[in-house]
Nucleic acid binder design. Structure first.
Lengths: 155, 155
DNA sequence: AAACAATCGTTGACTTTTTCAATGATCCGT
DNA sequence: ACGGATCATTGAAAAAGTCAACGATTGTTT
């Protein structure tokens, strides 16, 4: 984890053909973004992943842990750890699944929603900073392309 | 690591606001791409990272290990391991730095270049598959935006 | 309704990856 | 020539990821 937000200048090696590999570009931007995001969230005792869980708990979608694991590309056991932490801090709760009593639905507490509002603001600022090199239109377009590549979402 | 290339359909949770977070989108697409790329490279005994090192060794740019670490967002000690492996297999060699004798320049062998050509073809196919949901123009645009976000590269 | 296989969350073990400090060799500025 | 910095390397410690097994519950088959 060496790089910060936007690099000072184009590195010499970017000239190589690999400088256009999607895999590498994603890895680098993701790595750079992670340190930025985690730094922004550290004030709230959160990290990227626990923030993701908290956000989804606040979404009203009532996700199960299995859904969280699938959506966040995590092993179910990792979700257990994340929820354990958030629950211990009183930010989310495990509720019994409605149709399926094996499943646990993760919902936010009032305290969790307060925390989420503040953390969201910090994260948005970090994201803005990371994409400072792009125009607003380009940022929008980048997100659209990422969503489409992932889910084929038309809009 | 749960997801495959392009997901079958938009997951229910993508409707949440987090479905537009750049951090999450990058994480998911990167995770999905990694399994795809590593699968494609497995036939050659390579992984994403060793392939990156091999590519740069083949680029003619004569990168030092320090440059590789910076460019690939890796710890220098991780580069040692990667180069050790490639060198043991006769694909790259450590050459003495020209101005700086502390530095080691990583260059490819003839065998390494042969391997790289074949692996490159497999990786390009994997990338094509991952971005199958995008038009050619959109793929180009995605790469451009990623490069610009990272390096502010005009072109 | 009884038996069966499958799924959910959880635990614990195991492997891989990451992180970091220390080292010898070499470089650079004074 | 001295002192501080940088390079590759090693090894140890911490963190993250992977995986199989379990009880509880569900859906399916007989």
């Amino acid at each position: 984890m060496a790089t910060l937000g936007t690099e000072v200048q184009t590195p010499r090696l970017a000239a190589a053909r690999i400088g256009s590999d999607v895999g590498l570009l994603l890895a680098k931007l993701h790595a750079a973004g992670s340190v930025l995001n985690n730094k922004a969230l550290a004030d709230f005792g959160l990290r990227e992943r626990s923030f993701s869980v908290l956000t989804l708990a606040c979404s009203g979608l009532e996700p199960t842990q299995r859904e969280l694991a699938d959506f966040l590309s995590l092993d179910p056991s990792q979700v257990v750890t994340l929820v354990d932490d958030l629950e211990r801090r009183g930010l989310v709760e495990r509720a019994q699944g409605k149709q399926d009593r094996r499943a646990k639905i993760i919902v936010s507490t009032a305290e969790g929603r307060r925390m989420h509002t503040k953390a969201r603001a910090a994260l948005d600022a970090a994201e803005l900073h990371q994409l400072a090199g792009l125009t607003d239109g380009e940022s929008q377009e980048l997100k659209r392309l990422l969503r489409k590549a992932l889910w084929g979402t038309a809009e």
